[in-house]
Design a protein around this nucleic acid. Structure first.
Lengths: 203, 203
DNA sequence: AAACATGTTGACTGAATAGTAAACTATGGG
DNA sequence: CCCATAGTTTACTATTCAGTCAACATGTTT
């Protein structure tokens, strides 16, 4: 069967970039097409609406990140080191993005979820799905830490949600202040939430 | 001098409601006018742009909340009780709003800040200003708690930012999941972040 | 090379958008 | 009572928006 192109992928990447950098509402189909070097007709050849594109772009974006997540949260890594490693990864990523585009962008899922959670059912559902997948990594690390006696967390799911709340809140703070500093406290805060004794060392 | 009206106030209230419930981008000037029972001409008599309205509406909204904040964070209340009281207040407020409009709305400043922090300078600045004012209440409660030996927080400002991050993250979570449950853990998480020993009682 | 499926294009639609401008009206101070 | 001032109204612009459509191009299979 004839002719394959990468326009679909280019459109999803462009959409993700623009939505992350700005917002869903202020990202027009025209702008996405221009950034992707595609025409509007092509857009609607691949996607039936802007909303559907967003859902698929989110999914593709997550799939791209998944391998790294699996690596960072590998059961071969001590559980609390997984968290530390992830936070370091996020800090590096946000710092790099800041250097490249001049702004700290925070978490695209969270920003998008806050923006249109109530308005667009499909996007809201997709955001929830991805955030839940993400939370499961935290949950299993916390459960393992508990099993190994590193922390006491009888309800790993609830604890994970608290750590995720702190994590997302720090990312939102970083975006709003356009400053990566809140992200340097991620490990410290998360461990505190988990009841790990802090060494009075650093700083 | 002639004729006074409450249209300006009605417009700000309508704008705040719509932006909080939906988003800045999806809230049109027409919709604001309709909800406020005003005509577009009146809108532009009082405000020079939608952006300016948002800035002023945010300010008015904060001023309305300030008295309650002063009461809750009164130095006459034991510092950690201030936090507990505030979280309870927020939980009640969000629960009430949920009942009234069918959705958990989270923090308008944070949602708005994430949405247009990078796009609209004036709104971003206003959001930062208000979030900073808010954080100062936390900061002074934490400083007092430290002074009274209830917690050890040599850097109250930094600790306050962490607690705020957890707080905002929980509100974002609640909005995205349309569920107030994350808000029931606010006090627990905040105290954990502050290194307060939890009683193994509840639940 | 013919047939066909896949992908591309540009011109189009109609609705919604933020913002304007000028005529109009009510009111309180002189 | 009258008129300047603050506020209101209506009809308007120009742009941008998401989405449509039919003609066209190109590669693959037969």
């Amino acid at each position: 069967m004839p002719r394959h192109s990468d326009v679909e992928e280019r459109l999803m990447n462009a959409a993700m970039d623009l939505i992350w950098e700005n917002s869903y509402g202020s990202t027009s189909v025209d702008a996405i097409c221009e950034k992707a070097g595609a025409k509007k007709g092509s857009f609607y050849h691949f996607f039936e609406s802007k909303s559907e594109l967003a859902v698929k772009a989110l999914e593709a974006d997550w799939q791209r990140k998944k391998a790294k997540m699996d690596e960072i949260f590998s059961p071969s890594v001590p559980p609390l080191e997984r968290l530390r490693g992830y936070f370091e990864h996020v800090y590096q990523g946000q710092t790099k993005a800041h250097g490249e585009c001049g702004a700290v962008l925070g978490c695209p899922y969270c920003s998008l979820g806050c923006e249109i959670g109530t308005q667009d059912r499909a996007i809201g559902e997709q955001v929830r799905k991805i955030l839940n997948r993400n939370a499961r990594y935290f949950e299993s690390a916390i459960r393992d830490a508990d099993a190994q006696g590193l922390i006491s967390a009888p309800d790993a799911k609830s604890k994970a949600q608290m750590v995720v709340a702190f994590f997302q809140g720090s990312l939102a703070q970083a975006r709003i202040e356009n400053d990566v500093r809140p992200l340097r406290r991620l490990a410290e805060g998360a461990l505190e939430l988990l009841g790990v004794e802090q060494k009075a060392s650093a700083k």
